[in-house]
Design a protein around this nucleic acid. Sequence first.
DNA 1: ATAGTTAATCGTCGATTAACGATAAGGTTA
DNA 2: TAACCTTATCGTTAATCGACGATTAACTAT
Lengths: 112, 112
Amino acid sequence: MATDCGKSTQLAFRVTEQQLIDEKSFATQAKAMSHPARVRILKILFNLDELGGCLSSDLVAEVGLAQSTVSEHIRILKQAGFICAEPNPPKICYRINRQALEDYKQQYCQLF
Amino acid sequence: MATDCGKSTQLAFRVTEQQLIDEKSFATQAKAMSHPARVRILKILFNLDELGGCLSSDLVAEVGLAQSTVSEHIRILKQAGFICAEPNPPKICYRINRQALEDYKQQYCQLF
DNA sequence: ATAGTTAATCGTCGATTAACGATAAGGTTA
DNA sequence: TAACCTTATCGTTAATCGACGATTAACTAT
């Protein structure tokens, strides 16, 4: 059935400015996770969390894309806050940010 | 610290074919939610679930984009399984698919 | 100081996305 | 049948994305 379809009052559509901000924020986070290579990277770093993360070169070997491409994916994930970089010159150790993963879930649960 | 960084064994990177499929599937779902207008649409339909969904024209009015643009966003959400269309000629009633929303959360929890 | 290693940045390219107006398709109702 | 309403599709345009190789930058170690 869907007999009432279209009878929805304007009231049902009312939305606060904060709500729109939250939705946009969520969309941005979702976008960071919207590529298989990035999900792969997140998963690897998630698994390696206790082992202290890993290097970009390890990720490059694993995902099978060019170094520059992986670097770009890393940049996107970093910007979204899902991973962080610990300088360990001349290397850089990438690690998962479990809190950000948790926050994403919270955002989702709050929306739906 | 990050002293162990780089010492990760190959073992830690081992991944099954199914795992890759799941990650790709999750990325695809995330992509469907990676646009503010689409999140907005999902939220509206989520709120209207008990009221029996709403029409495309209602969504057009709400998100403030052209009818054809909203139609495309609807198509993407439909394809991802997050919403469904109930023909109610000549209108079409769009509704949220709560199960798909739940499944997405499960996918996420399974990954991280 | 020089050579080597690691990661970021640059420039380019093709593909995809997002947006729009215009048009077509499907189905009611007069 | 004809006019109408609702939604999908088409065609176009500008912008963004994803990938790559080449180069640069930062730092170590010889």
